[in-house]
Every structure is written in structure tokens, then in C-alpha cells.
């Protein structure tokens, strides 16, 4: 498949802060490309350059084989952007919102009405089409946010953290919608800091940190980057942050990541230190509720590559 987006040595700074530092990546047609990184990593800046909201300082960006700097408006016609915040008019009906944004891509008349209704149907809001979004739940607003970006049937859909702050049911609906859009032929760039979302839907993943692309590939390819390690996940009844430093001294442990009552311990693949870990918990009165030998998650990959958590 051909590249739909080609980014070479992209750089962008804001005053003294380097937001994007020489990123190069290609996104192929009909893939769901996940852009993963903690807040402030440079994901949104990259996306904003791609959809024409920011000017790049250096680098070359091509979309659909056309240079972004020269053919921006032409490129924009084939891009749909789902912004991070819910950008819909609360006092326009759902249908009117979709029609408004679709009309800005050149749709008109019967085609505008039909495609707008198709978009609403796609996100499951047909019955709410004549209602104002101010009466919608957070999840419904998120779905409308997506409908406004897809009515004109774009070849490339850029989704910037589209599931922030919504209930699990709406999240699942959105993730299913993303997969469906992809199966219908759209290429999708999906940015998030939720690794489980990326694991669930993305065909390829790019990990960004401090403005640099530190790794990219399929989930399996990323796992192989840290194949010399394994993960032990312990769930306790109490917080174990205080014992983290002591536990780290156990031979074979390379990294520890704790989140409230759950601790993820990364060890060398050859090392068998599970006995030492359980002994440590016993000695320090840490009640173990469960213990699992985890697969290498994206969290582990990220931790291994950057030395910090995605949620830092």
C-alpha cells in the first residue's frame, strides 16, 4: 500500500520549547496509525501541523503525495479532523452541526443532507438529529464531534484523543466506529495516551516522547523491542509506593511502575525473582491479592524506551 502521509524531519518550536524534534514517519493507506505518548509529548503539535493549524519550522510533509506547504487547501478537502475538545455548537441541532461542517468541505443540496444523515446514523445519533447538543450526554457529544468530521467522506481522518472523559460504553462505541470507518476505506491517525485503545484498534503504532518518535511499528514489532524482559503484575490491598525503592534492589528487577494498589515489575527474561518478590511483600506486610505474569504491554515498551510512565 502507498504512503498517504509522509513526514520527514519535522520540527516545531514555541519560543524556547521544542515541541516536535525531527520526527520522520510514513503512514500507509487504509491503516489505523496510533500516535502514542504522554501529555506534552508532541502528538497534538504534529497533528495540528498535519491539518494546517500550525506552520512547521522545518521538514517536509506530504499528504496524498502533495506537499502540505503548497497544496494545503486541496489536501484539506480530503481530511476530516476530530479535535480533542468537543467542538460543536450547543445551540444548533445535531443535524445542523453536521450539515454546517460538511458544507465547509463543499457539500451542498441533497448530497449535503444525505451525507449528513449518514454520518449521524454512523455514530448512532439518527434519533437525536433534531435535538440540541446542549441536552446530550458527554458520550453523545463525542459521537457528534466525530460525525461532524466524517460526513464529507474524507480519505484521511485525524482523531485527537476522541475518547477523553467519557463512559466505557461510549468509548467502546467510538472504538468500534473507528474500526468500521477504517474497514470502509479511510486511513486513520489516532492519538491517545490510553495504551489499551491503541492496542485494541491500531494496525501500527508510533511512540512519541519529548517531541521525538522513539519507536514505530506493529504491536508485535514494538513488543520485540523489549523481548529480553518480562513483566510481573502484583495487586495488593494497600498502596505500595513507599516500598518501591527497596523492592527495586531485588536482583533481576529492572523497572518498577506502581499505580495505587497495582505494581508492575519489569525483570530480565532469564531472571527468576518471583520468590524474592513474594518474600519481600511478606516481610513488608504487603498483602498480595493477585499476582500475574503479564504480557509485555505498550506501557512496558514505553517504560523501557523512555524510562517513564505514559501517565507521568
Amino acid at each position: 500500500m502507498s504512503n498517504i502521509v509522509e513526514i520527514k524531519n519535522l520540527e516545531k518550536s514555541f519560543k524556547n520549547v521544542t515541541a516536535v524534534d525531527g520526527i520522520s514517519l510514513n503512514i500507509k493507506e487504509k491503516e489505523i496509525f496510533g500516535l502514542l505518548g504522554p501529555n506534552g509529548a508532541g502528538k497534538s503539535t504534529t497533528i495540528n501541523i498535519l491539518c494546517g493549524l500550525l506552520r512547521m519550522d522545518k521538514g517536509d510533509v506530504k499528504c496524498f503525495g502533495k506537499e502540505l506547504n503548497k497544496k494545503l487547501r486541496e489536501i484539506k478537502k480530503d481530511i476530516g479532523v476530530v479535535p480533542q475538545n468537543i467542538a460543536v455548537y450547543e445551540d444548533l441541532k445535531a443535524r445542523e452541526n453536521v450539515e454546517f461542517f460538511a458544507s465547509l468541505y463543499g457539500l451542498k443540496g441533497k448530497e449535503l443532507k444525505e451525507k449528513s444523515m449518514e454520518a449521524l446514523e454512523f455514530v448512532g445519533l439518527t434519533e437525536k438529529s433534531e435535538e440540541m447538543p446542549k441536552n446530550f450526554s458527554g458520550g453523545m457529544k463525542r459521537r457528534l464531534n466525530i460525525a461532524c468530521a466524517i460526513a464529507h467522506k474524507p480519505k484521511l481522518i485525524i482523531m485527537d484523543e476522541p475518547t477523553v472523559g467519557i463512559d466505557p460504553q461510549s468509548r467502546n462505541h467510538i472504538l468500534e466506529s473507528v474500526k468500521k470507518l477504517n474497514s470502509m476505506g479511510s486511513t486513520i491517525i489516532y492519538t491517545t495516551h490510553y495504551m489499551e485503545e491503541v492496542e485494541a484498534i491500531c494496525t501500527r503504532i508510533g511512540i512519541i516522547d519529548h517531541g521525538k518518535l522513539i519507536a514505530s511499528g506493529t504491536y508485535e514489532e514494538l513488543q520485540n523491542l523489549v523481548s529480553d524482559r518480562k513483566t510481573i503484575v502484583i495487586e495488593s490491598d494497600i498502596g505500595i509506593d513507599a516500598n518501591e525503592a527497596e523492592m527495586k534492589k531485588i536482583k533481576g528487577i529492572t523497572k518498577i511502575f506502581s499505580d495505587e494498589n497495582v505494581i508492575s515489575i519489569e525483570t530480565n527474561k532469564e531472571s527468576d525473582c518471583i520468590g524474592d518478590i513474594t518474600a519481600f511483600c511478606r516481610e513488608n506486610d504487603i498483602p498480595i491479592r493477585s499476582i500475574n505474569m503479564g504480557n509485555i504491554s505498550l506501557e512496558t515498551v514505553f517504560l523501557s524506551l523512555t524510562g517513564r510512565s505514559l501517565r507521568d
Binding site: 467542538a87 455548537y89 465547509l104 463543499g106
Partner: peptide
């Protein structure tokens, strides 16, 4: 502040 200006700027409008 609601991000509408930015969203409109991403569309194909001149």
C-alpha cells in the same frame, strides 16, 4: 476558547 475557530480552520473553507 471552545476550539470552534480552530476546527473551522481545519476545513476546506477559504
Amino acid at each position: 476558547s471552545a476550539g470552534m475557530t480552530a476546527r473551522i480552520a481545519t476545513t476546506a473553507i477559504k
